[in-house]
Design a protein around this nucleic acid. Structure first.
Length: 377
DNA sequence: TTGGAGTCAATAGG
DNA sequence: CCTATTGACTCCAA
């Protein structure tokens, strides 16, 4: 397997100039100061670097980082805490489902710039490995000398192993919310509800909550999270679809269909398609996946609005880096989309349908907003 | 207020 | 230990 030719994510992140065209006059708010100073690099703060950074291929960066970490037996926790300033769970999520650069907010790009920076110098790996050793050493030392010592001075590790001395100790008011864990059926019910209405009204939410015997806030949170995560699923599928083969090989580069417009980026065939399989249930069985059909409304299949897509990703001025063949894959339109007469289909279509519902919801919302005023058409 | 983006942190599996 | 999942929270913009 040829696999990636070692990315070589050149990019000296601090190349281009782009003098702060939009420089808020000295507004600069406080800034608790960087928890993570960022290696050495000129005096720039990461925020500044993020602002100047050219478009990065988040997927490639992520892939590389995962590779380096596993190759060197470095964990996400250590990497996240010391390099990114994030917790293990966040790192896992980020590495597994990186959002395309253009869909990230300034804040969201920060971790990727940090990763890129980290990857740029092989010595960084060594440093991390050193830290790992040091941690281990400290750990060993601790458990060795604490043979009979349970000093109150142990921030971490509550595990006083050995003797669990019975001081029931306070828990104060037994705080610590137990963390709600939704039962599979509850999730099913919520997903079903989502299919019909991605944006339930307060009233609907109340109903769901009482029917499922859940707190209203839990239902609300669930919808927030689910929508958000469904969105990400779409992102990665877009990337995968775009990355693949066929038509235009090479042209690596972070290209993802820009688009809030739901364009069809399907390349049927090629990928894995259970031949003949007519019944639903496709292979992947993750959670978010598997959005069952049943949207409340019929998807009127109008030809996808052309949509200008003028979104020109101002390519970084000059900068030796590869500039892209952007336009090339910017729109991997498949005229077939509108025609697709295929009834049964992958969950992708369903998700897109849900996404469409999203858009519809917004339009309706906007339309209903009072403002009897005119729309000037 | 509502919804989105980022995260945290408790947990469940390995 | 480590990683993946996921309910809840914080910030922010509209």
């Amino acid at each position: 397997a040829p696999e990636s030719p070692l990315s070589s994510a050149e990019e000296s992140v601090k190349s281009l100039g782009e003098p702060p065209a939009s420089q808020p006059p000295a507004s600069e708010s406080s800034e608790p100061c960087e928890p993570l100073p960022v290696p050495g690099h000129s005096g720039l703060s990461i925020q500044e670097m993020v602002a100047m950074s050219p478009e990065l291929d988040t997927y490639a960066i992520t892939k590389k980082v995962k590779e380096v970490l596993t190759d060197n037996n470095l964990g996400q926790r250590l990497f996240g805490e010391t390099i990114l300033g994030l917790t293990q769970g966040s790192v896992s999520d980020l590495l597994a489902r990186p959002k395309p650069w253009h869909k990230l907010s300034l804040k969201g790009r920060e971790p990727f710039v940090r990763m890129q920076l980290w990857l740029s110098d092989p010595r960084n790996v060594e440093k991390l490995m050193d830290m790992k050793r040091m941690e281990k050493k400290a750990y060993m030392k601790r458990r060795h000398s604490s043979v009979s010592e349970s000093q109150p001075a142990e921030p971490g590790l509550p595990g006083g192993e050995g003797s669990q001395s019975g001081s029931p100790q306070h828990q104060q008011h037994q705080l610590k919310k137990p963390r709600v864990v939704l039962a599979p059926e509850e999730k099913e019910a919520l997903k079903r509800a989502y299919q019909q209405k991605p944006y339930p009204s307060p009233k609907t939410i109340e109903e769901l909550a009482s029917q499922l015997n859940l707190k209203t806030s839990t239902v609300i949170n669930w919808f927030h999270n689910y929508r958000s995560r469904i969105r990400r699923e779409l992102f990665i599928e877009e990337i995968q679809a775009a990355a693949g083969e066929g038509s235009s090989p090479s042209a690596r580069g972070s290209k993802a269909g820009e688009g809030d417009s739901c364009d069809g980026t399907e390349s049927d065939g090629t990928v894995e398609g259970r031949p003949g399989g007519v019944s639903g249930s496709e292979g992947n069985g993750a959670d978010l996946k598997e959005v069952k059909e049943g949207m409340g409304l019929e998807m009127s299949s109008g030809p996808p609005a052309p949509q200008d897509t003028a979104t020109s990703a101002l390519s970084p001025p000059g900068t030796s880096s590869q500039k892209g063949s952007a336009i090339g894959s910017l729109f991997s339109f498949s005229e077939t989309a509108p025609i697709a007469r295929n009834p049964r289909d992958s969950s992708l279509r369903k998700k897109k349908a849900a996404n469409l519902n999203n858009i519809i919801h917004r339009l309706e919302k906007a339309a209903s907003r009072e403002e009897p005023s005119e729309w000037e058409f």
